[in-house]
Design a protein around this nucleic acid. Sequence first.
DNA 1: CAACAGTCATTCGTATACAAATAAGTTTGG
DNA 2: CCAAACTTATTTGTATACGAATGACTGTTG
Lengths: 140, 140
Amino acid sequence: MSNDTYCLEEQVGFLLRRAHQRASALFAVEFADHGLTPTQFTALVKIFDEGEVSQNKLGRLTAMDPATMKGVIGRLAGRGLIAGRADEIDRRRMQWRLTETGQALMHRVQSAGLTVTRETLGPLSAGEQKILLRLLQKIV
Amino acid sequence: MSNDTYCLEEQVGFLLRRAHQRASALFAVEFADHGLTPTQFTALVKIFDEGEVSQNKLGRLTAMDPATMKGVIGRLAGRGLIAGRADEIDRRRMQWRLTETGQALMHRVQSAGLTVTRETLGPLSAGEQKILLRLLQKIV
DNA sequence: CAACAGTCATTCGTATACAAATAAGTTTGG
DNA sequence: CCAAACTTATTTGTATACGAATGACTGTTG
């Protein structure tokens, strides 16, 4: 195995893309009844954690571009899962929080997120799982 | 750290999404002069490896949906990097290969792909890099 | 050989992802 | 205090990503 040969299947970018695809597919199965995408769930989790959060800050917390955030927020608000209000101090800012519907949904899907994680890491031993998470955190 | 608490930053799906974003960003910098996306480069590499390959098979080799493949193929063909012909045996099938322009481009970007891999794995030691690749291959 | 199942490519619709440009509002530095 | 620098949110355009449906074609099987 020479160092200057480009083997697609050994490139970390290709592996990350495929691993992400598999994680997303497992997510889709587990969340099929709730109609949430991984990204939408991510946003809901962080809004839940923060209580109330501005659109741009939510984007930073969830690693989403402002343009992406706009779309995600719009779809969640369109379903009545979150509600926004204009910030009275900074008039550019929109503050978002979960509605009661959104909170109820978060309760229902409480365990589903962890199930997806468990399934995604299924092929690995407990020790390997810890190592993978640690290494991923280092290259993020 | 309890097991039933959902910490977004520790979920493998979120980490995979962020790691993939970072790898794509590093790719974009390295390939800015060539105007190739990671996906397009992936397709070119596999066409190069195969010599000639059908559209659906290329999709399987590169982990792309037929609908996605159609778009990628269309943009590469539109730039004259690949050329297609109808298969004379199976009349549904399209066979694709690199044009001379495409081959020349692949020569020019020969080292760039490996550079992206090196940069993406930069925060890790050589041993950690091997482990990460092995673990990713297991969960793909 | 005729029905059926499977494959190949396309199309449509939805959802990230992000660069780039813009408008409006806030903060900072001189 | 005022102009420059920055932040917030939006808009446009391009590129994956994939479910679902479709039409055309191929292989299999009774």
